[in-house]
Write a protein that binds this DNA or RNA. Structure first.
Lengths: 157, 157
DNA sequence: GTGGCCGGGTTGATACATCAACCTGAACAC
DNA sequence: GTGTTCAGGTTGATGTATCAACCCGGCCAC
């Protein structure tokens, strides 16, 4: 065979990235869970909802913002509604109900965002400094573009 | 010089990274699932097992390699055993059983690794090129170090 | 109007992650 | 031997992710 033994420099760097992504992600997630009793999914939904003036928006809009599948979002909203973080609201067209941030949900995200942001700065932004951060972000953007092109090619086959 | 970078800009760069990590991860995972019928977790376990000469190792060793909790690993091995990818083997000390790659498991990982590697090159390594890749990996290593220090501080409190 | 279409939402089944509780058998003390 | 300890493994409960199947209400054709 041979692929097992032949791990090149580039592959080691790939593994470094994977390690970093895994650890950074789980660290942030654990912080949110411990300090604010919010999962990463909760956090994301709540953030999207605060981006609306009225703390309320159509479910479909949340779906677009998070890029989640409709069923995942539906399950998530059910759980969050059970915990009192959001509530479902019937709108004029009964096919497309809205979701609204409750006071409890607002309190939760209001506490979580500053802490989360602080952690992101301490662990990522300030570690890299502005120059390297810009280079890093550019690299991420390039990878994203490559991903889009790859997906396009896949679909057109 | 420019250390007082606009907060909003750093924030956008952080979001770019998050987007990239999310999309790249899910793309690789979907590929594995579709083409090879393996989850990311399956893939990781199988790769670790191939790193052993005899396609067999103590469960604890897999736990160390993957850095998973013992219960997560146990559940995972149960599911993989049910699907015939691995099998549990009693060793001399019956407290610490081994896991062995089955022929089916070997065939699966033998197909998956080259395809996965190729994708990683096309979407990440070749996109960045050697120079930027090295810078990127260095940045990841620095973030990892910051994470470790942060964890230490947390524990020593 | 009535019936079919269709986009968006919900539900159920299955796989996976995480936590807590429990089991198990070797090792050690006595 | 008997009992205790303890590292390592398993199990169950709960929360989460994904897929497929279904539902539902407005819309359009006729």
């Amino acid at each position: 065979m041979g692929w097992e033994q032949d791990i090149g420099e580039a592959d080691r760097m790939w593994r470094t990235y994977i390690e970093m992504a895994k650890h950074l992600g789980s660290h942030l997630q654990q912080h949110l869970q411990r300090e604010c009793d919010l999962s990463a999914a909760d956090f994301e939904v709540l953030v999207r909802l605060t981006e609306s003036e009225r703390r309320e928006m159509p479910v479909a809009e949340v779906a677009v913002a998070t890029q989640w599948e409709k069923s995942r979002l539906s399950h998530q909203l059910t759980r969050m509604a059970q915990r009192g973080l959001v509530e479902r609201v019937d709108s004029d067209d009964r096919r497309y109900p809205d979701v609204r941030l409750t006071d409890k949900g607002y309190a939760a995200i209001d506490k979580a965002v500053p802490e989360h942001t602080e952690l992101v700065h301490a662990l990522f932004i300030d570690v890299l400094g502005p120059e390297r951060l810009a280079g890093f972000a550019q690299a991420c953007a390039d990878v994203l573009r490559a991903l889009d092109e790859h997906r396009e090619r896949d679909c057109s086959l």
